[in-house]
Write a protein that binds this DNA or RNA. Structure first.
Lengths: 133, 133
DNA sequence: ATCAGGCTTCCAGTCACTGGAAGGTCAAGC
DNA sequence: GCTTGACCTTCCAGTGACTGGAAGCCTGAT
């Protein structure tokens, strides 16, 4: 299968698929014309990568997960650990963003947002007012 | 004031301060020895940038906010719009991450995480099981 | 024969820094 | 005066995960 068809099937752009080959995630063979020739396993791996990336796993996590997937004797605890660490990073990020949201929404509410120059948001940024949160 | 003192005062690394000069956010003068000489206004601007960045504003947002801050005749509505757009991006990001958290925590809960190879997480990634969410 | 569209490689750019190398400057101590 | 160590300078390269674009080959249809 050519790269365009694989792109259509997996939802990954051709550019991304070439990039995944560059960094050694997949190893498609080549036809006589120099085109990449993707096997069903290649397509399957790419679908795996597409799903993993859409869940926010880093490329290196994806590499590890793919290796675990291909390792018939792996322990599910290994996979679970990767997923749990990722989940913790996501939860940490959510907490950070919620803090920002709280501060920003306070500031936005305080700003009358009319044509006058006085602005509590700028006052906060400049440190000329007591900080929210 | 030398860059190291400014770094201590603003909490920004020296490298970052030099970078902010490179991209035209600040314009410190130079002493005879070639060292940057930071005025109190420079320090104030850097503190403004430090605070804005810590609230997650992009560098380009910061540039706009700094310009608004220095513009005595600006309308607070302009500032408010920048902040509101940023707030919306943050809320969007939180929603995305909450979706990921939900999917991942389902998967992690389903995985017994012992030494056996059977693993619902990999099954999901490989598309061999019905998807969560 | 020609043309559109798909394929190839390679290079540069994104964002906001960060690390490191190579070298100039300064203040203190001997 | 000399050394030492902590500063400061510039410049280049790397981060993550692509993305855009240029230049050129290949294929299938008209």
């Amino acid at each position: 299968m050519n790269i365009g068809d694989v792109a259509d099937r997996t939802g990954l752009p051709s550019k991304t698929i070439r990039y995944y080959e560059d960094i050694g995630l997949i190893h498609p063979t080549r036809g006589e014309n120099g085109y990449r020739a993707f096997s069903p396993e290649d397509v399957h791996k790419l679908a795996f990568l597409s799903r993993s990336r859409s869940l926010g796993f880093s490329i290196e996590d994806c590499r590890a997960l793919l290796q675990l997937y291909e390792d018939r004797s792996r322990a599910s605890a290994d996979v679970r650990r990767v997923a749990e660490e990722h989940l913790e990073r996501i939860e940490q990020k959510i907490r950070e963003l919620e803090g920002l949201r709280s501060t920003l929404s306070h500031l936005v509410k305080q700003c009358h947002g009319d044509g006058r120059p006085n602005c509590p948001i700028l006052d906060d940024l400049a440190g000329t007012s007591a900080r929210q949160q």
